[in-house]
Design a protein around this nucleic acid. Structure first.
Length: 573
RNA sequence: UGCCUCAUGGUGUAAUGGUAGCACAGCAGAUUCUGAAUCUGCUUGUUAUGGUUCGAGUCCAUAUGAGGCAACCA
């Protein structure tokens, strides 16, 4: 795995916050953070930002970051999701660390804490701080009121602890149906913060859990479980997205209860009180970042799966050809603030070009082939080209060159535009790495499309410049017809046609799907490309960055995915 | 008719009372065996109105705008 560079981002507010706590000795000597995904989907570039913040801050302060699967709601979770989340985080270059709650260091399941959470709930009941409630969901909604007006107490609010304990134990024992009873924290029905109006902390769900099977039929709610997980793991800094800001008082309320119960972790003599802070989630132009909508596109077959290269998922971007370093660089560059913003996809693309320009081997591929014949050329020569002109250590390669070649249709114009300096009647151009040719004629098919370009070559220009010193402005790429390899090339473009597909609401986003987000072409590529490794990345000269498809590539039937085009500043005058 | 956030070029960010800077995008030009890369230059900004201060993007007040909160989701 490549080295993760030190973030050179300025000291953002979370970093300053942690610095202060370290200076004040509140961490007990170790900064501990956590990344807590729910295993109910694949992680996307938005999660990647959170991963970089959580793991990045731990790394910066020499602490540890736990990977915790927040699996408190069994209805949508699965092992498949859990495994892929772990895989994607590793691929991004991060490794969780810390004790862990089983055999794997740094790895936790919230569900492994269910026994403790249950005990804490019973303690709350005994202390008169929680009660069982049998209001229906509709009733509970009605009692809770609206933000503008105080709510009313549940009729069960003053049930005795003894009776509550009895009901709660019966809930656990499976005596009740889903929704019949729930456990609520007893806080303040008049609070302006609706999360304080006696929030539900345990609900009945007769559903098998992917990790624990049928051990439980009651499951803790996020607001109750999350602070317990953080506290018991000894997490010092719990960073999450902005929408949890209004949950923070409740988070602190639960931590206070744990403190009263003497359950907070003590490290090096310091009692660890986990604290939550919130930062803005990542939004990206021309895509959507909601797990629900991504799932919808997968299940409706709008894309080929979670790892479709057009998806903003980590696995999709991996298959598209993005590098972990480019994704990390992007996350670093968008910064960490509390401002809800929309980052420009162009920055992401810049990040991947920036890396691949330095590392990707150059190859030639003709995506829209037109035949070119060099009338006065005979036999075969070997053209030599550097694998990467920016990296001498990458060496060079020999490419067969003969009388008939493929060139790209866009590199010939019958009536050249002003400022077009590639091929046209009577024009000269350099065939990259080979020689200068002059167009002496061309043919068209019945549809009027150019079908053949006739040239002659300047023998003296082989491997260098014209012997008489004349300048040739254009250089084009080519593939030898005799030895070139046929390949399927998948040209990916943005998934949506507008910067914000959610502009008319989340139920309307599909109408902005880009019908041209995938174009598959039959191309000719230079022979060495047949030996590519699946997943290997290249620059197709003058065209873009591509990778051999990790799933579908084979030497017999090569398949390449376009990661991103090269920047193109050609504009006809 | 509640509570909580937030507001700096087109976009993303920095400036922690003392010269509004960086990156991406865009536009020029140089260079080039990739119209890439590289190099040079340029355009564009503190939501508004008051106040405090020698000095305000920063502190205070008001206004305006944007977002979040009313799942037994996370």
């Amino acid at each position: 795995m490549d080295e993760i560079k030190e973030s050179d981002t300025s000291r953002h507010f979370l970093r300053q916050w942690i610095e202060e706590d370290v200076a004040a000795g509140r961490t007990g000597g170790t900064v501990v953070t956590r990344f807590p995904p729910e295993p109910n989907g694949y992680i996307h570039i938005g999660h990647a930002k959170a991963v970089c913040v959580d793991f990045g801050m731990a790394r910066l302060f020499g602490g540890e970051c736990h990977l915790r699967l927040d699996d408190t709601n069994p209805t949508k979770e699965s092992d498949e999701y859990a495994e892929n989340i772990k895989n994607d985080i590793r691929w991004l270059g991060w490794q969780w660390s810390g004790a862990g709650d089983g055999k794997e260091p740094g790895f936790y399941n919230a569900s492994n804490m269910f026994d403790t959470m249950y005990a804490i709930a019973e303690n709350l009941i005994k202390a008169g701080q929680a009660y069982c409630c049998n209001l229906t969901q509709d009733e509970w909604k009605e009692y809770r009121g609206v933000p503008e007006k105080p709510g009313r107490p549940s009729p069960s609010r003053d049930t005795t602890p003894e009776r509550n304990l009895e009901i709660f134990r019966d809930m656990r024992a499976g005596k009740y149906a889903d929704g019949e009873w729930c456990l609520r924290a007893k806080i303040d029905m008049a609070s302006p913060n609706i999360h304080f109006r006696d929030p539900v902390i345990y609900r009945i769900r007769h559903v098998s859990h992917y990790h624990l099977g049928d051990k439980w039929c009651i499951y803790p709610m996020y607001d109750f479980a999350h602070p317990i997980e953080d506290a018991l793991e000894g997490v010092t800094h719990s960073m999450c997205t902005l929408e949890f800001e209004v949950h923070r008082p409740l988070y602190d309320w639960v931590v206070d209860r744990l403190d009263e119960m003497g359950m907070l972790v003590v490290r090096n003599g310091v009692k660890i009180r986990p604290q939550q802070r919130e930062f803005a989630r990542l939004n990206l132009t021309y895509t959507v970042m909601s797990k629900r909508l991504l799932l919808q596109m997968v299940t409706e077959g709008r894309v080929a799966g979670w790892d479709d290269p057009r998806m903003p998922t980590v696995c999709g971007m991996r298959r598209r050809g993005f590098t972990p370093g480019a994704i990390r660089e992007f996350c670093d560059r968008v910064g960490v603030t509390k401002v809800e913003s929309e980052s420009d996809t162009a920055l992401l693309e810049w990040c991947v070009r920036e890396e691949l320009n330095k590392t990707a081997l150059r190859r030639m591929a003709v995506l829209d082939p037109v035949k070119l014949v060099i009338e006065n050329f005979e036999g075969t020569r070997m053209a030599s080209k550097p694998n990467n002109p920016l990296d001498e250590a990458s060496g060079s390669r020999e490419i067969p060159f003969s009388r008939e070649l493929w060139i790209d249709r866009a590199d010939f114009q019958e009536n050249p535009e002003k400022k077009f300096f590639r091929l046209g009647p009577d024009r000269e151009v350099r065939l990259a790495g080979a020689c200068i040719v002059k167009c002496v004629g061309y043919e068209k098919d019945a549809d009027g499309k150019v079908s053949l370009v006739r040239c002659t070559w300047d023998e003296g220009s082989w491997g260098g410049n014209a012997p008489d010193g004349r300048k040739v402005k254009g250089t084009i790429h080519w593939v030898d017809c005799a030895t070139g390899v046929k390949a399927e090339v998948r040209l990916y473009d943005r998934l949506f046609t507008v910067p914000n597909p959610m502009q008319d609401g989340s139920d309307q986003f599909l109408k902005y799907l880009n019908p041209e987000s995938l174009k598959t072409v039959s191309a000719y590529v230079e022979p060495s490309l047949a030996a590519a490794e699946p997943g290997e990345r290249f620059q197709f000269e003058r065209t873009g960055y591509f990778c051999a498809d990790a799933k579908d590539f084979s030497a017999a039937a090569p398949v390449f995915n376009r990661t991103v085009t090269l920047k193109d500043s050609y504009k006809p005058a």
